[in-house]
Each structure stands twice: as C-alpha cells, then as structure tokens.
Lab assay of single mutants.
Amino acid sequence: MDETGKELVLALYDYQEKSPREVTMKKGDILTLLNSTNKDWWKVEVKITVNGKTYERQGAVPAAYVKKL
C-alpha cells in the first residue's frame, strides 16, 4: 500500500497499450491498483513524468502482467 492506503501492484512485464482504455507500463513499474474485480484486466493508475511534470493516467492492464505488493 502507498501512503494514502491504496493498494500497489508491480509490473512483471512490459505492456504497450492497444486502445485508449489501456495504459502502457514497463517491467518494474509500481502502479496504483484502482479495481481488480475483473479477473483478466485490472484498472490501474500510472504516474508519467514528462519534462519534469508528473501526470496521472488511469487505464486497464492485463492482470497476469502485474502482481499485488
């Protein structure tokens, strides 16, 4: 869990989004888990830093590609 009490997951593999509802992640990324009720796809929040600014993006990733921490 992070400092706000939200559950975290670890990306076990790289994943490139294939639709606007998904998010890209790299192996080793730590993501915030938002919903894991679907056994195949979990909704997560990814933090992306671009030019020193951090953005948050929500989307789905394959459940088999992440592990709860």
Rank of each mutant, 00 (worst) to 15 (best):
Q16Y: 14
M1F: 13
K18M: 10
Y65K: 05
Q16N: 13
D2Q: 14
T32D: 03
K43M: 15
V66I: 07
T4W: 12
I30M: 05
V23E: 00
A63H: 03
T32V: 15
T4E: 13
T37E: 14
R21A: 14
M1N: 13
M25E: 02
K26E: 04
V46Y: 08
D40T: 13
G5N: 12
A60P: 02
D2P: 13
Y15H: 03
Y15Q: 02
T4L: 12
G28N: 05
Y55D: 03
W41H: 01
K47Y: 10
V44C: 02
L12E: 02
W42H: 02
E45F: 06
P20L: 09
A63M: 04
L34W: 04
V9M: 03
K27Y: 04
L8E: 06
E17D: 04
G59T: 01
G52D: 06
I30R: 04
S19G: 12
K53R: 13
T54L: 09
G52Q: 05
A64G: 10
L8D: 02
R57T: 05
V44R: 00
Y65H: 06
E3F: 13
D29L: 05
Q58F: 06
Q58A: 10
L34S: 02
A60V: 15
V23Y: 03
N38D: 15
D40F: 15
V50F: 09
Y55V: 11
G52C: 08
A11H: 02
E17A: 15
K27W: 04
M25R: 02
V46L: 11
K18A: 10
L12H: 02
L69G: 01
T24L: 03
L8P: 03
K67E: 11
S36R: 09
K43P: 02
K26V: 07
D2K: 13
K68D: 02
K43R: 13
T37F: 08
E22N: 04
P20E: 12
W41I: 02
W42I: 04
V9F: 04
K27M: 07
V9A: 09
P20V: 09
T32F: 09
G28Y: 05
T37Y: 09
L31Y: 09
L34I: 14
G59N: 00
L31W: 03
Q16W: 11
L8N: 05
E3Q: 14
L8Q: 10
L10C: 12
L69V: 09
A60L: 15
V46W: 06
V46M: 09
D2H: 14
E22I: 04
V9G: 11
E17N: 06
L12R: 03
A11E: 03
G28R: 03
K68N: 05
V61L: 02
Q58M: 08
A63Q: 03
K68W: 06
V46R: 09
G52W: 03
S36L: 04
D2F: 13
L69Y: 08
V9D: 01
I48L: 10
K26M: 08
T54V: 12
Y15W: 09
K43C: 15
Y13N: 08
L12D: 00
P20Q: 09
G59E: 01
I48A: 06
R21L: 14
A64M: 10
T32W: 10
W42N: 00
K26C: 11
D40W: 15
K6S: 10
W41C: 06
M1G: 13
K26Q: 08
L69R: 02
T49F: 11
S36A: 11
T4Q: 12
K67H: 09
N38Q: 09
P20K: 09
V23S: 02
D2E: 13
L34T: 04
Y55T: 10
Y13M: 11
R21H: 14
Y65R: 05
T49D: 08
V50Y: 09
L8Y: 15
